[in-house]
Simulated assay, not measured.
Amino acid sequence: MTESTMAAGHIAAWMERYQAAWASNRPEDIGGLFTGDAVYETRPHDPDPWRGRQEITDRWLAARDEPGAWSFTWELLGTDGATAFVQGVTVYVEGPSYENLWVVRMDGSGRAAAFTEWFMERSKGPAPGTQLLG
């Protein structure tokens, strides 16, 4: 993977807009992230993906997080052509925290044509590799 790809030129701004949409829950912010025929998978090989800008917006709002209820940090792992690979951590104020891996396929205008997320709850135990004494 290389950083000199179309996705690399769009992903930082797209991630800023994604977080703004997550915080605002405004339909125009959400819809503006995606192409008209985009596919949003809430898990790999999702049997019921969200299809099209309107359905993505509607289902996002049905499952929305309220502003201030979460924080999110991310880093770009790499890109390949039109696809960006993003690692993130979502922390909910009154709930679990999640490790995230997002695969975002961009179009030439900076919108996502496809989005797939993997997420898993962060362990509440010791950090990986920690040896417990006792």
Results as ranks from 00 to 15, higher is better:
Met1Trp: 13
Thr2Ala: 09
Thr2Lys: 07
Glu3Gln: 12
Ala7Gly: 13
Ala8Arg: 13
Gly9Val: 09
Gly9Lys: 05
His10Trp: 02
Ala12Asn: 09
Met15Asn: 07
Met15His: 02
Met15Val: 04
Glu16Phe: 05
Tyr18Arg: 03
Gln19Ile: 15
Ala21Asn: 01
Ser24Arg: 02
Arg26Lys: 15
Arg26Glu: 15
Arg26Asn: 11
Asp29Asn: 00
Asp29Val: 02
Ile30Ala: 05
Leu33Cys: 04
Leu33Trp: 01
Phe34Ser: 05
Gly36Val: 10
Asp37Ile: 11
Val39His: 02
Arg43Met: 15
Pro44Gly: 04
Arg51Ile: 13
Arg51Thr: 14
Arg53Asp: 02
Gln54Met: 09
Ile56Ala: 06
Ile56Glu: 05
Ile56Thr: 00
Ile56Trp: 07
Thr57Ile: 01
Asp58Glu: 12
Arg59Ala: 01
Trp60Phe: 12
Ala62Ile: 02
Arg64Asp: 04
Asp65Ser: 15
Pro67Ala: 00
Gly68Thr: 07
Ala69Thr: 15
Ala69Asn: 13
Phe72Asn: 10
Phe72His: 12
Trp74Gln: 06
Glu75Gln: 14
Glu75Met: 11
Leu77Ala: 14
Leu77Tyr: 08
Leu77Ser: 05
Thr79Lys: 03
Gly81Gln: 06
Val86Leu: 02
Val86Trp: 03
Gln87Tyr: 14
Val91Thr: 15
Val93Lys: 15
Gly95Gln: 00
Pro96Ala: 03
Tyr98Arg: 08
Glu99Trp: 11
Asn100Thr: 08
Leu101Trp: 02
Leu101Asn: 02
Trp102Lys: 08
Met106Asn: 01
Met106Leu: 11
Ser109His: 11
Gly110Val: 01
Arg111Thr: 03
Ala114Pro: 06
Ala114Glu: 14
Phe115Val: 05
Glu117Met: 15
Met120Tyr: 07
Glu121Val: 12
Arg122Lys: 11
Ser123Asp: 14
Lys124Tyr: 06
Lys124Leu: 11
Gly125Val: 03
Pro128Tyr: 12
Pro128Ser: 12
Thr130His: 08
Gln131Tyr: 08
Gln131His: 12
Gln131Asn: 10
Leu132Asn: 05
Leu133Asp: 10
